[in-house]
Amino acid sequence: MSAAKRFLTRETAQIEVYGHVGLLVASLRNLSETGAFLEVAKGDYVPKKGDLLNMTVNLDTLDRIHNVAAEVVWSKGMGLGICFINRDQVLERMMAKSSSF
């Protein structure tokens, strides 16, 4: 299976991490159909692998706002690789995590 084509971007994203209070600001560096690479710019928490998040991107040039659910698949320093997930999967994955404790 080939990797999804990535597109470079310089959009700003707001990130809400489920289970953590507050908003993070991140730079969206590249984007594909299946995920994205982000660099956290501001916030008191850097998401780690397995964190579930809600990402909002204001596309000023298109006058649109995109809001997607995602899971962090890797993190290194302030950088994050995320894969997009169906919003219905967020609760399911949160429940699976809580039952593993």
Rank of each mutant, 00 (worst) to 15 (best):
L62Y: 09
M95Y: 07
T9K: 01
A69G: 08
A41L: 15
E92M: 11
A4Y: 10
T34L: 13
P47K: 07
F37K: 14
A69L: 00
G77A: 06
T61Y: 12
Y18M: 04
V25T: 15
L31M: 12
S27N: 14
N86W: 06
I65Y: 01
A3F: 09
N58W: 12
R93T: 01
L31C: 06
Y45K: 04
Y18T: 01
R29E: 15
R87T: 12
V25I: 15
L24E: 04
R6W: 07
R64S: 12
I85L: 06
A70Y: 10
G50V: 09
N58F: 13
K5N: 06
R87F: 08
T56K: 13
E33P: 00
C83E: 11
M94K: 09
K49D: 03
K48W: 00
V17G: 05
K42P: 00
K97H: 09
D60L: 14
R64N: 02
L8P: 06
A13Y: 01
L80P: 05
F37A: 12
S98P: 01
E71C: 02
V46D: 02
G81Q: 07
K42F: 09
L91Y: 10
V21C: 03
R64W: 00
L28R: 04
N58P: 02
S32H: 06
L91R: 11
R87D: 10
G77M: 04
L8E: 15
S100F: 08
K5E: 15
I82G: 06
T56Y: 01
G79A: 13
I85M: 08
D63L: 10
M1N: 09
T34A: 12
V40K: 13
S98D: 10
T9F: 01
G79T: 14
P47G: 08
A3H: 13
A41P: 00
E71L: 02
V90S: 05
G19M: 02
E11H: 10
T61P: 01
Q89W: 05
V17M: 04
L62T: 00
D51H: 13
G43H: 07
T34G: 09
K76H: 13
T12W: 03
M94W: 02
L28D: 02
F7T: 11
G81R: 08
V21S: 09
S27E: 14
L59D: 10
N30L: 03
S98L: 14
I65L: 11
V72I: 15
N54K: 14
Y45P: 02
D44T: 13
T56N: 05
G19K: 08
M78Y: 13
V46T: 14
R93F: 11
N30A: 02
L52P: 03
G79Y: 15
